[in-house]
Nucleic acid binder design. Sequence first.
DNA 1: TCTGGGGTCCTAGGACCC
DNA 2: TCTGGGGTCCTAGGACCC
Length: 397
Amino acid sequence: MFVSGDATILHADLDAFYASVEQRDDPRLRGRPVIVGGGVVLACSYEAKARGVRSAMGGRQARRLCPDAVVVPPRMAAYTAASRAVFEIFRGTTPLVEGLSIDEAFLDVGGLRRLAGPPLDIAVRLRREVGERVGLPITVGVARTKFLAKVASGVAKPDGLLVVAPDRELEFLHPLPVERLWGVGPVTAAKLRERRIRTVGQVARLGEATLVSLLGAGAGRHLHALAHNRDPRPVQVGRRRSSMGAQHALGREPHSPADLDAVLAGLVDRVTRRMRAAGRTGRTVMLRLRFADYTRATRSHTLVKPTAQTGPLLAAARALLRAALPEVEARGITLIGVSVGNLDDRHEQPPLPFDRDPGAELDAAVDAVRDRFGSSALTRAVLLGRDPGLEMPRLPD
DNA sequence: TCTGGGGTCCTAGGACCC
DNA sequence: TCTGGGGTCCTAGGACCC
């Protein structure tokens, strides 16, 4: 029978996901260091990790560390398909699945003991199934809380399984370095290091007030709770994205306002197209900038009505960019991004027929142009207000 | 070795309303 | 004329995650 307080939460995490898909699909890559992505490392195999390669590392450094690595371009469609197949296995295991990203999820198997056996057996079967049916290695951590299950999978990687029994939790947790805690990144770790605090156990002995004064109220309380393995968050099914965005890195050379506008139009088009495909609308447009010194800034504007139409969202993004141009010209720009937040479901406002909804008509025309001529033609058309082969309504300013 | 693209959550001040 | 507390929304920034 179900005993509350059992270790019943699984954190399942595919190992070196993109690189493992590449090794699965090309046997020549197996056992060799593999790097996915050229400019920066998107993912790398464990053979490459053993040589010091890390994701997000610059490509040049990665090749210097590991000259015999095979560098392959990313194949997002293959990763998406593999992810879907794995999530099907997750949902075949338990209905209580909370996806965290393309390659990891929490599974609550608390109610399944009678049906499917104890969590350890379920985890063993899950790993075998993912291996046999999708051909990928996956690590599973099992614990009483989400947080600890994730820590456990991190410790067990790669291709591992680790169950943390409820009566051994602190014994497991306290010797670990603070960086293992979910939410402790470089900044927090550095602040703790200044106080000579390196392990989770040392954090636990600090006392909440000290942590709050060191890290602020939110982070301090959060960290204090985690260090004592207090994490009441349940596994949540069906969480929806709350924003969608796209961004594009630019070289350090100067960019004219017209160039930036072209990039911006392409980004807004990409985002709104995905929003329409997902049936979402949004109200808040956020412009993200990164300057030549790699500091960042954001500018946002909230519309009165949610929409997925390119027109109003592009107009808002353009207004934000125009307002930021003096700063951009003074400081130089190396990245431009757009995201739409405050996402709503679209169901409340069924799409109007074209003859009553010029915005939807415009979007349909834009999609048609892209499909026929490609996105670069589309960007030119949007910028010039010209017709590359189709009647194109003008974009609002 | 100059650093991609996609997200989440938290904080804090100001506007505005009751 | 001066003084409250509480709540929500918007904007901007920052830390963190994969």
